[in-house]
Design a protein around this nucleic acid. Sequence first.
DNA 1: CAGAATCCATTTGGATACTG
DNA 2: CAGTATCCAAATGGATTCTG
Lengths: 123, 123
Amino acid sequence: MDVTTAHAAGDCRSVSEILSRVGDKWTIQVIVALRQGPARFNGMKRQVNGISQQMLTRTLKALERDGMVVRTVHHSTPPQVEYRLTELGFSLSETARQLAEWATLNSDAIAQNRIRYDGRDRP
Amino acid sequence: MDVTTAHAAGDCRSVSEILSRVGDKWTIQVIVALRQGPARFNGMKRQVNGISQQMLTRTLKALERDGMVVRTVHHSTPPQVEYRLTELGFSLSETARQLAEWATLNSDAIAQNRIRYDGRDRP
DNA sequence: CAGAATCCATTTGGATACTG
DNA sequence: CAGTATCCAAATGGATTCTG
C-alpha cells in the first residue's frame, strides 16, 4: 500500500493547501516551461502565453519561497536574472507535465460537454 | 514526440483555463475521493476533509458540467443521489492521484522551505 | 531588463438560514 | 438526505505607471 492510499489519498489538510497553491492559473504552466532549462524573466513572459508581468512575478516568488525555483542575479548591464527548477520543482514538473498533457488532450471533449450541459433545459 | 512536446507543453489558451478549473481548492480532492467508487453527497462531505456544503455542491456541479462526473437520483425516502466518475473523470483521476501523492510526500519539505525563506532578512 | 507599486474587477470560498 | 439562497470576506488576476 502506498502512502497515498494509506492517507486515503488526500485527507490531510496540508494537501488541500498545496494543491490550491500549485493549481492556480499559472503555476503549473510556469513549472512546465522551466523544465526545458533555466530561463530569464522576459523570456518566460513570452513563453507562458498570456501571463501578465505581475502574475509572473508573484508566481515565481511563491515558487522560490516553496523551494521549487532558484533565482540567480547576474549583475551585468543589462541585468540578468535567471530562474531554474530545484530538484523539488523538477519532481513536481513531471506530474505537472502529465496534467498539462491531459488538459491538452481533453480540452475539446470538455468544451463539448459544457455545450451539451448548458443546452439542456435547466433552471 | 508526444502531443505535449509538440505543443510546447501548455501554451494553448485552453490549457490554462482547464488547469485553473481542476486546480481550485477542492476539485482534485473530490475526484480522488471518487476513485474508490460512487459516493453520496454527505458521504463525500465527510470524506473530503474541511469542505463546506456549498463548495461541494459547486464543485460537483462543475464536474458534472465538464462531463467528469455523473449524478444519479434515486427517488426513495430518504432521497439518494449518487455521484460517480465518467471515463473522462477517471482518466483525470490517475494524474490527480499522482499530484495528491506528490503533495502528501512533499508538504513537509515545502513547509520548511517557507520557514527558511521567511526567516531571511528581506523587505 | 527585471521588477515594484497601485488600483480595481472578478472569483473563490466560508457561514448561515431555509427547503422538498 | 441533498441540496438552494444569500451575504460577505479574502484571494486572484489584469492593466497601468514608475524605477534601479
